[in-house]
Simulated assay, not measured.
Amino acid sequence: MLKEQIASSLEREFSEFGFAEPSVAQLKVACGVSLRTLYKHYPSKEEMIVGALQHRHQRYLAFLLADVPETGIHSLKHIFTKLGVWMKEYAPHGCMSMNALAAFPENDFIYQAVKSHKKDVQRFLGEQSVRPDLSTQLFLLHEGVSSAWPVIGEQALDAAQHTIIKLLSEN
């Protein structure tokens, strides 16, 4: 339970301040634990980042699944609408996973955590659409919204939703 609370606090800090900015001492304060307790659960800053990313991954998928009406086109519309809410409320600076990868491009531990998250999102979109053959296209739309959000906001979401309708009606 304490490890999850620490991961939640780490997620908030990294989301707000990025990955280079907060020192381990600042992270310790944000988590409300001793340095020894922080290092007991997350022995390095990289492990703190991965813990935060994994916590966010679980929270994100649960957020998208909340109140999903059904599978297929209605499910995708709902999911992409929720993606817009997520971006406004929790990720105005873009995808936290991609930001971590940009901050630590050579770190394989972080890369594997991001890759796992992205594969899960791709699989999730294929399952929810009942079109696993379109999971890559849907994933690219999802990622496009996440990447473009800081620059064009809801325009990215509107374009993705329009493209989803067109994509599913053509196939």
Score class of each variant (00 low, 15 high):
M1P: 08
M1I: 15
L2A: 08
E4P: 00
I6F: 05
A7S: 10
E11N: 14
E11P: 06
R12F: 15
R12P: 15
E16W: 07
F17D: 15
F17M: 12
F17V: 05
G18T: 02
G18F: 02
F19E: 04
F19M: 05
A20S: 13
E21L: 07
K28S: 01
K28G: 00
A30T: 02
C31N: 01
C31G: 00
S34N: 04
L35D: 15
Y39I: 03
Y42F: 13
P43L: 05
S44I: 04
S44F: 04
E46I: 06
E46W: 01
E47S: 13
M48L: 07
I49T: 01
G51H: 01
G51M: 03
G51E: 00
A52W: 00
A52T: 02
L53I: 14
Q54N: 12
H55E: 06
R56V: 10
R56D: 08
R56F: 15
Q58V: 09
Q58F: 09
Q58T: 15
A62D: 10
L64N: 09
L64R: 07
A66R: 13
V68F: 14
P69Q: 00
I73H: 12
H74V: 15
H74K: 15
S75N: 06
S75V: 06
S75I: 05
L76H: 02
K77R: 14
I79V: 09
F80T: 01
T81H: 13
K82A: 11
L83N: 15
V85T: 13
W86C: 01
W86R: 03
M87N: 06
K88Y: 01
K88Q: 07
Y90I: 02
A91C: 08
S97F: 14
M98L: 12
N99G: 08
N99Y: 03
A100K: 03
L101E: 08
A102E: 09
A103E: 03
F104H: 07
P105C: 02
P105G: 00
N107C: 11
I110K: 04
A113H: 05
A113F: 03
V114I: 03
S116W: 13
S116C: 11
K118H: 13
K119T: 10
K119V: 14
D120F: 04
V121H: 07
R123V: 11
L125C: 04
L125D: 02
L125S: 02
E127G: 12
E127R: 15
Q128L: 03
R131M: 07
P132H: 11
P132Y: 09
D133Q: 13
L134Q: 08
S135D: 11
S135C: 15
T136S: 12
L140T: 11
L141S: 12
H142N: 03
E143L: 12
E143G: 04
G144H: 01
V145Q: 06
P150R: 05
V151K: 10
I152L: 08
G153K: 01
E154I: 04
E154G: 04
Q155F: 05
Q155S: 11
A156Y: 02
L157V: 05
D158I: 13
H162T: 08
H162W: 07
I165P: 05
I165N: 12
L167M: 08
L167S: 01
L168K: 00
